[in-house]
Computed example of a mutant assay.
Amino acid sequence: MKNDTASILRASNLSVTPGRQKILQLFLDSDGALAHSDIEKGTGEHFDRVTIYRTLQAFVEKGLIHVIPSTDNSVKYALCRNECTEGHHHDHHIHFVCERCNTTYCLDNVITPQVHLPESYILSQVEVVAKGICKDCAAIKKP
C-alpha cells in the first residue's frame, strides 16, 4: 500500500502540489538515497531544476528528508524517520555507500559514535559515511 503523500505534506504544513507529491513518492518508494539527477529522471515528468531544488529544501526544512554529503561534494537525500521534525533532524545513523552499485543507504540501526571535543568546541552535527559492498551486490557473484 502506498503512503498518502497528500496527508504527509499537509501534516508538515506544506502545500499539496503534484510535483511535491511525485517527488515525495519517489522517496517513499526508494530503498536508498536519491541525488538531484535521480529525482529529475524518476518523476517521469519534466520539473525544472529550480523547482526540484526548492522542493528538496522545503522537505529538508520540514524534517521529511535529510542531506547526505559525499566526498566528491555532491549531495544525496534520504527519507527521514519518525524522529525528525521541522528544523530538527535526528540523523544519528551511519550512511553506507556501495562501491559497486553506488547506492547510498541509511543504516538506521547503526548509531554514530559519540564524539568528545576539546573544551570550547561546540558540536552541531556528526556525519559518518562508510564504504564497502552492499548486501545486494555481495550476493551477486562476479565472473
Results as ranks from 00 to 15, higher is better:
Ile68Arg: 02
Cys98Met: 04
Thr71Phe: 04
Lys41Met: 08
Lys62Gln: 13
Pro69His: 03
Asp4Arg: 12
His66Ala: 10
His36Val: 03
Lys22Glu: 15
Leu123Trp: 12
Ile52Tyr: 03
Met1Cys: 01
Gly44Phe: 13
Ser124Tyr: 13
His88Val: 12
Cys134Asp: 08
Leu64Ile: 11
Phe59Thr: 08
Glu86Ala: 01
Asn109Lys: 15
Gly42Tyr: 12
Ala6Pro: 07
Ile122Lys: 14
Gly44Asn: 09
His93Leu: 09
Thr112Gly: 01
Ser30Arg: 10
Thr55Tyr: 08
Ala78Arg: 04
Ala11Glu: 05
Val129Ile: 11
Glu127Ser: 14
Gly32Leu: 02
Leu56Tyr: 09
Val50Cys: 11
Leu117Cys: 08
Val115Tyr: 08
Tyr105Ile: 02
His93Gly: 07
Tyr53Cys: 01
Ala130Asp: 11
Asp72Leu: 06
Pro143Glu: 06
His89Pro: 05
Ala139Glu: 07
Met1Ala: 11
His92Gly: 13
Cys80Thr: 14
Gly132Leu: 04
Gln21Asp: 05
Val60His: 10
Val115Arg: 09
Asp91Pro: 10
Ala35Lys: 15
Thr85Gln: 00
His90Thr: 09
Gln25Trp: 06
Ser37Pro: 11
Asp108Thr: 07
Thr112Arg: 09
Ile23Trp: 04
Ser15Ala: 12
Val126Met: 00
Val75His: 14
Ala130Val: 15
Gln25His: 14
Thr85Cys: 04
Lys41Phe: 09
Leu64Arg: 04
Asn109Trp: 05
Phe47Met: 02
His95Arg: 03
Glu61Val: 03
His95Phe: 15
His95Tyr: 15
Thr112Tyr: 00
Ile8Asn: 01
His36Ile: 00
Gly63Phe: 10
Ile65Trp: 01
Asp91Arg: 05
Ala78His: 15
Leu117Ala: 03
Asp136Pro: 02
Asn73Thr: 15
Thr51Met: 12
Phe27Arg: 05
Val128Ile: 13
Val115Thr: 04
Cys134Asn: 10
Leu26Gly: 05
Ser70Pro: 00
Ala130Trp: 07
Leu9Gly: 03
Leu26Phe: 10
Val128Glu: 01
Ala11Lys: 05
Pro18Lys: 10
Gly19Phe: 10
Leu107Pro: 06
Val126Ile: 09
Ala139Pro: 02
Thr71Ser: 01
Asp29Trp: 07
Arg100Glu: 08
Thr71Pro: 09
Asn73Phe: 14
Val50Trp: 11
Gly87His: 13
Ala130Pro: 07
Thr51Tyr: 14
Ala130His: 06
Leu117Gly: 01
Asp29Ile: 06
Thr85Asp: 00
Gly132Phe: 00
Asp136Trp: 02
Leu56Cys: 08
Asp136Glu: 01
Ala139Gly: 05
Ile122Leu: 13
Glu119Arg: 12
Thr71Asn: 06
Pro118Asn: 02
Glu83Ser: 07
Tyr53Asn: 03
Cys106Met: 11
Ile39Cys: 01
Glu119Pro: 08
Leu24Asp: 07
Leu34Tyr: 06
Leu123Ala: 03
Pro143Tyr: 15
Ala138Arg: 02
His95Ala: 03
Lys135Glu: 14
Leu123Arg: 13
Cys98Thr: 00
Val110Ile: 15
Ser124Asp: 12
Arg10Trp: 07
Tyr53Leu: 05
Val126Cys: 00
Val67Trp: 08
Pro113Asp: 06
His89Asp: 06
Thr55Trp: 08
